Computed example of a mutant assay.
Amino acid sequence: MTASSASPAVPRTRVVAPALLLLLGIFGMSAIWTLLALIVDRQCAWIAVITAADLALLLRLSHAAPGLPRAFVTLAATLATILISNWTIAATQMGGPMGLPLVDSVQRLGTDHAQTLMLLANQPAEWAWYAVAAIVALWLGR
């Protein structure tokens, strides 16, 4: 096989480094968001915008290929962070008074119950923050 017939492969570091930084960003921002929400006893949905900017910055720093794919990856990571944060906030608010640690309460919270709690906790202002975060993720993620 000659060099010209070999298909150009994406270097492993071009996929691994952005993926690892993205996972770190998702779970790190989810932890910060959950702790802040529990401290102030509010949803703190405005953190979703900061999360979108943070994830876009992490992808840029990891030299992920620019363009629409990076913007959609940023959007997906932002939505995943919103979901994980809302799940852990609901789980800790339900499990904490019963004496359950975070890991147990997150595992025991069912999807239907979590969905109901998230819909009750998120008012129109929070949904507006999530929409702004989605726009910021697409804009900064390009």
Rank of each mutant, 00 (worst) to 15 (best):
R60I: 05
T111R: 13
M29E: 01
A80Q: 09
H63V: 06
L38F: 04
A121F: 12
S30T: 12
Q115D: 10
I135K: 03
A128S: 12
R42V: 09
G141A: 04
L75K: 08
A45Y: 05
T2P: 11
D104P: 03
D41N: 12
L22P: 00
R60G: 02
I89A: 06
T81G: 10
A64Q: 08
A37I: 01
G67W: 11
A133Q: 06
L35R: 06
I26R: 01
P124T: 09
T34R: 04
L36M: 07
P11A: 04
T116L: 15
A48F: 04
A114M: 14
W46G: 10
A134W: 05
T51M: 05
A128L: 15
H63W: 12
T34P: 02
A125I: 14
R42N: 07
F27A: 05
L68P: 03
I50Y: 09
A48S: 13
L83E: 12
Y130F: 15
L109W: 12
A91H: 08
W127G: 05
T51N: 08
W33M: 03
A71K: 06
I50G: 13
A37G: 09
A77W: 04
A3F: 06
A19M: 02
L22E: 01
L24T: 03
N86C: 12
F27T: 03
S5Q: 08
L109M: 11
P69W: 10
M1P: 05
A125F: 15
L119S: 11
V49C: 11
T74Y: 04
M1Q: 05
S7A: 12
W33E: 02
Y130P: 00
M1N: 01
V73W: 09
D112M: 14
T34V: 10
L22A: 05
G99C: 10
L24H: 01
A17N: 00
Q93I: 07
M98E: 15
R14W: 02
